[in-house]
Amino acid sequence: MSDRLDGTVALVTGASSGIGEATAVALADQGAAVALVARRAERLEELAGKIRDDGGTALVLAGDVTVERQAREVVERTVTELGRLDTLINNAGVMLLGPVVGAPVEEWQRMVEVNVLGLLYCAHAALPHLLSAADDDPRHVADLVNISSVAGRVARSGSAVYNATKHGVGAFSEGLRQEVTGRHVRVSLVEPGATDTELSGHNRPEVLEGIKKRFSGVERMRAEDIADAIGYVVTRPRHVAVNEMLIRPTEQTN
């Protein structure tokens, strides 16, 4: 990484496990004060303790970003308690797969709420602060990173609604990028392939079995691999923007 994040503040949603947890650690290691957002407060406290033990600054903000009021509150508390907001990592997400025919509609609702609405609420609340940070020391640039998926590029039978939410994230990211990039707010889309996290664990048993079969011969990436990529994105010099990054395990074909 070429440019440390000393003197900046990052907010990471979905920080209680997986990619969010690893990213919070990576950004703290680069000098950012980190606001940790998720519903599981006890997991956030554990993570905050680790970051503080390593000399970093961490703020625990338990909340549900699918509730607009709470999404706005975590952003405002970050700015109030840590002084500013330079980086937003929209990582909170849920993946509930299965056929469209006969699907539990509540699974679709949950994915739309978390993957789309939660991301939009956080982005809307954060943008004024990111624009302000981009005009200020120490870096004169700010970053909004949306975590999507390979599913945001390739539609597959059995994941139609998940595909729809992640394609939506991609479209939103590109439209917003064009709107604010001239003001030095960089909007980046990171699209991981198969990664060893808790993401797939919320699926129905028959769906889990299909996921295991599909990736049985693939060495999955680790959360730290994606965190490393996110760290690369947000530490580029001011004149460099990484707009999109697709990351797959070497053995994953699609």
Rank of each mutant, 00 (worst) to 15 (best):
M1S: 10
D3L: 15
L5Y: 00
V12A: 10
S16W: 05
T23M: 03
T23A: 04
A28W: 00
L36S: 01
G49V: 08
K50I: 13
K50R: 11
R52S: 03
R52V: 03
R72A: 12
E76D: 15
T78N: 05
L85G: 02
N91T: 13
G98T: 11
G98A: 13
V101L: 13
M111H: 02
N115F: 02
L127D: 00
P128A: 06
L130T: 03
H140K: 11
A142F: 10
D143F: 14
S149Y: 06
G152T: 04
S157C: 12
G158T: 12
S159N: 14
A160I: 11
A164F: 07
T165K: 03
K166I: 05
G170A: 10
A171S: 07
G175C: 12
L176W: 08
R183K: 10
V187P: 01
V187I: 15
E191Q: 06
L199A: 14
R204Q: 09
R204H: 09
P205G: 15
E206A: 11
E206T: 07
V207Q: 08
G210M: 06
I211R: 01
K213R: 11
E224S: 07
A227V: 06
V242M: 11
N243P: 09
E244M: 08
M245E: 01
I247D: 01
E251S: 06
Q252E: 11
